[in-house]
Write a protein that binds this DNA or RNA. Structure first.
Lengths: 214, 214
DNA sequence: ATTGTAAATGGACGATCGTCCATTTAAGCA
DNA sequence: TGCTTAAATGGACGATCGTCCATTTACAAT
């Protein structure tokens, strides 16, 4: 261990000290918090630095501008979704049915679907069409997750049916989940996680009788 | 017909003349057009009046401020959805199956689901959570549409099953449609209207065998 | 023709936006 | 203890935001 490892990331200094990594993290977190609470249009440089407790020049210094910071915030937020999704999927690997339901339950779990996340998610969606960098992170679930679900449905279908059926059901299932997120956004009080899981289960049980019993 | 009917709304004057109604309409249309093309954050007073071809003071004069104009634009946009939906639903009244599929086809039709509408819809969604007035128009389909679908599913279920089943399937169907809109937003080029209708049909056919044959 | 009324104009205004940079501060090295 | 380097500061800057109002314009009634 060289002297260099006695860097500011160690817990020696209580708070104030040189730590560019910490500054970056503070800014990203403050940005996401501001978007969640005040919306993206009211997420200004002044508000971000106030929440982060840093000086005005930090955004330009560490990110090169407000837009780049927003992009990094979107990336971080998207990354956090998959990290938590993987965490909840860690213990499950029994079969296609369990895999699919594990993904569904995780996507609708309190850790992933809550007022904060749904607010941030839809805020980014609103500006995604004109900001390709953000659009990339606003995609309807990524290829890996889609692949996992599609493979599971393929296994469930065995060899019967067309090749496109599994793709259709995959897209339908993802669309169902998307719709649940939107419902949470528009009716945060009336929303029921249990009902949401039950509804998805109903559709899948109808599709594969006996496999997704409620 | 009194003299008053020779108002500016008549086609006497070619373009310039007093017509507060026309000014209001121009401003609302310009607002929606700007949101569709530039996003809500770049929809400024300057841009709106430029597109509308009116003077700066008009927004404050006719709407009392930019926020009120945005709210009116959201109302108008939402209203247009239901007007077109009703138009497409006008000829259908055969049975529950036809009613449901007519709503699905209409919701996914080019008139209702297109790049412009999906951009505006998601832009409003993005700011809805902090703007109650706009949130009201961003609701996931209104009570009337939901009621029509729910009644149809009730009829399809006849007397079997719990009372909540129809509600569940209704919410699932609406969620599916919401998800399709989101997919159109994130993948406008890859999206297929035909595939979207087919996927919804698959799920409903699984739920009610023989009723929603593809 | 004159007057009254309301629509329409467009510039002034203060506030706030994001960017940038001269300066200060703190940590590592000689 | 100086010296170097990079992190951090915070105010200045021009641009642009939305609001507002004194003024002009156009139409209807007198």
């Amino acid at each position: 261990m060289t002297d260099k490892d006695r860097s500011p990331s160690g817990k020696s200094g209580p708070s104030s000290g040189r730590d560019p990594e910490r500054s970056r993290r503070l800014l990203i977190e403050a940005t996401l918090e501001s978007i969640a609470r005040k919306g993206i249009s009211e997420t200004t440089v002044s508000r971000i630095i106030e929440h982060a407790g840093v000086s005005r020049g930090m955004i330009h210094l560490h990110f090169g501008g407000k837009d780049k910071l927003l992009e990094e915030a979107a990336r971080t937020f998207c990354e956090a979704y998959y990290i938590e999704m993987d965490r909840q999927l860690a213990g499950v690997s029994d079969g296609p049915t369990e895999t699919i339901m594990a993904i569904v339950r995780a996507d609708l779990s309190e850790e992933l679907l809550n007022e904060r996340s749904v607010a941030i998610w839809h805020a980014f969606r609103g500006v995604a069409r004109l900001n390709p960098a953000i659009a990339h992170y606003s995609d309807t679930r990524d290829a890996r997750l889609r692949g996992m679900i599609c493979d599971a449905f393929h296994a469930l279908l065995e060899s019967e049916g067309d090749a496109g059926v599994a793709d259709d059901i995959t897209m339908g299932t993802l669309a169902l989940l998307e719709g649940m997120w939107t419902d949470f956004l528009t009716h945060p009080d009336a929303f029921s996680r249990q009902a949401a899981v039950r509804i998805v289960s109903r559709f899948l049980e109808a599709m594969f009788p006996g496999r997704f019993r409620i």
